[in-house]
Nucleic acid binder design. Structure first.
Lengths: 245, 245
DNA sequence: GGATGCGTATTGTATATACAACTTTTCCCT
DNA sequence: AGGGAAAAGTTGTATATACAATACGCATCC
């Protein structure tokens, strides 16, 4: 699965700087070598070095000041608001019993709005799984998931009563990018029955989309009973340092 | 406040494409003109067009496929839930009009469960504000907030129709620690009326607690109409592969 | 001493060119 | 028809060059 092709030159420059920063060669607030020095040192053209530095700047690794130089930024306060956690792990950590019931597992053409998220070709087929999760035999999550066949070719062969899709997909390749959208909704009759919801009981819907480096990987709609479930996070914010002087 | 300098050329190209996409000239999944066509049309060099397209791709506006073309990506709703965002900023950034109505602003003894979060003395008084936020005159958030008097002694003297409590509190001292808990709920009759909710319409509740270095600072319960509002976040995960080559 | 101006270092933008990598279409041969 | 090779079209990377814009130190002038 490893990419054996040589790293692009501008990626090499980025890697060189990132590892140098990680190793402490240049510390937060310090100035790194100028574009011209890096040209000589790494044997790349200025435009290539420039592109690498511009991207590192966009990523928040560097702060570039025209006329002055490029400075190492303090690490960004990365907030794992909704990390990709595994519901089975959550439940067993609470000391409860988890059970998964597979309601569907197949390959199907998704609706146009969903298919276009995965490919510019609108009629592409996607893997689909629908799983109901129980905590102590009480339903707590309905998981409707589309998966890109290119990302997980063996998806349909898995036993999702033994390993959650989440865990399986993470084992293939951790996502490169994640999106979460949360809203409160009124479930339709089918979901109401599956989650054993009381009349007019709202549900908490979490849409999670992930991207691998190669492109869109998964799209999951996780529906929880509103009265029995909440999502949470708590984290410390890193201190901000001012500009280098 | 406006920047009167002429837009950079690559920014002009980006703006041209963004407005075209917004206007429906190219719809999600469709192919936009090639780099060469845009060169001729806009009178920029290929490298400049290329940079604009590359950045739009990084921003998630386009999907570029080598050898095939550039395709419009479906819009990704990204409102950073990770950060402490200001609802007034969010609304104005969407180009809409924000208005805040102060329903309450006083000092009161909070209920025992809440007061004990701030102080070991259960009858301690806390500052309390209740503000209803409108987007284009439609209510989108009820903000019920307790603030530690020790953290913000002048809280009651502020004009919260002009500056949101969020923004004011951030100006005192950015929080050291943050907690978010999200759940879907059924509003009581009062909230239902304030948010102009339909019968049985659920609401999305975000409880946010912050701590300063000295101790607990604020506790806010933000209630949104479920049908008209969602919370979202999207972020890239850092690469930690500094593997020796 | 302080303000001004100038030169140098550094980053920002824009162009032209070349070739590589990949996709789609065309067309020819069987 | 079908298969496969060739061609055309499109994006990706890399370089060399030129000039613009900004920051900063240093010398000069008052």
């Amino acid at each position: 699965m490893d990419d054996l092709r040589p790293e692009k030159l501008y990626e090499q420059v980025k890697t060189y700087l990132r590892t140098g920063i990680a190793a402490g060669t240049w510390k937060a607030g310090e100035k790194i070598p100028s574009e011209f020095e890096l040209m000589d040192k790494l044997g790349a053209s200025r435009m290539t070095v420039h592109r690498a530095l511009r991207e590192l700047s966009a990523e928040g690794v560097l702060l570039r000041v025209q006329g002055a130089g490029s400075f190492v930024q303090p690490p960004a306060p990365r907030s794992p608001l909704l990390e990709i956690h595994d519901i089975a792990e959550d439940i067993t950590r609470r000391g409860h019993v988890h059970r998964a019931q597979v309601l569907a597992l197949d390959s199907r053409p998704a609706g146009a709005e969903i298919a276009v998220e995965f490919s510019p070709r609108p009629r592409a087929k996607l893997f689909y799984s629908e799983i109901l999760h129980f905590e102590n035999e009480i339903p707590v999550q309905l998981e409707e998931r589309y998966v890109s066949p290119a990302f997980a070719p063996d998806y349909l062969a898995q036993d999702f009563t033994a390993i959650t899709p989440n865990r399986y997909l993470q084992s293939i390749e951790p996502p490169h990018e994640v999106e979460h959208i949360i809203h409160a909704g009124q479930p339709d009759a089918r979901i109401q029955k599956l989650l054993q919801l009381a009349a007019h009981e709202p549900c908490l819907c979490l849409l999670r989309r992930t991207w691998a480096k190669a492109g869109p990987a998964t799209r999951s709609l996780l529906t929880h009973p509103g009265s029995r479930y909440s999502l949470g996070s708590r984290y410390k914010l890193a201190d901000f340092n001012a500009r280098p002087g």
